[in-house]
């Protein structure tokens, strides 16, 4: 099954609109406590194991601040 290795949220550009949390069907994100460089509260990828790398959050991010890095193929079997 597809999974995400990590979800990067660029703290230089994030404006905390939380659209990533809204469009995510697997409830990966939750409101975080960390503030971005523009002083907005950023989302936090709390349940990373739920991520199926559909890319909706990336597509909907209005500030292009979000990147989903997928797990490399075959990595699950080795570990």
């Amino acid at each position: 099954m597809k999974g995400a290795e990590r979800i990067e949220i660029d703290r230089r550009y994030c404006k905390g609109c939380m659209l990533c949390q809204y469009v995510c069907k697997f409830e990966v994100f939750e409101p975080g406590q960390e503030r971005s460089a523009l002083d907005y509260l950023m989302p936090r990828p709390a349940k990373l194991e739920n991520c199926r790398v559909c890319g909706l959050c990336e597509l909907h991010c209005p500030d292009l601040a979000l990147t989903v890095v997928a797990k490399k193929k075959g990595k699950g079997k080795e570990s």
Binding site: Y13, G16, L19, A37, Y40, P62, D63, L64
Partner: peptide, 11 residues
């Protein structure tokens, strides 16, 4: 960063 407001569709 973009000049747009948070949640704007322009981005």
């Amino acid at each position: 960063p973009f000049i747009f407001c948070p949640g704007c569709g322009d981005g």
